[in-house]
């Protein structure tokens, strides 16, 4: 009974993933590429950065990086709170 549940779950999840992969666009041709072309054209002029990924991470989408830094800070605080009493 449990084995059949595992098989059915595996088939459903694999089927959903394959269904999504079958309808995937070809590599390097997304459906909307307006922001891609904007970043490629203007990141060197506006952010003075050759690496477009770093220009996006630290300049255009700086709020996301701030959130990521907050997540890391919270994780460190959690680990320190849990393990501080237990370490010698």
């Amino acid at each position: 009974m449990r084995r059949w549940g595992v098989v059915v779950t595996f088939l459903i999840v694999a089927g959903c993933l394959l269904l999504g992969a079958a309808r995937m666009r070809p590599f390097g041709a997304p459906r909307y590429d307006l922001m891609d072309r904007y970043f490629n054209a203007f990141s060197q002029r506006e952010a003075a950065t050759n690496n477009v990924v770093t220009a996006i991470v630290f300049d255009y989408r700086g709020y996301d990086t701030l959130g990521e830094a907050t997540v890391l800070f919270t994780a460190v605080i959690g680990v320190a709170l849990v393990l501080r009493r237990l370490t010698r």
Partner: peptide, 15 residues
């Protein structure tokens, strides 16, 4: 070059 981007790189790297 890069303005604040390299400085932020160092800050986030040390963080």
């Amino acid at each position: 070059s890069g303005g604040t981007v390299p400085l932020m790189n160092w800050a986030v790297g040390f963080k």
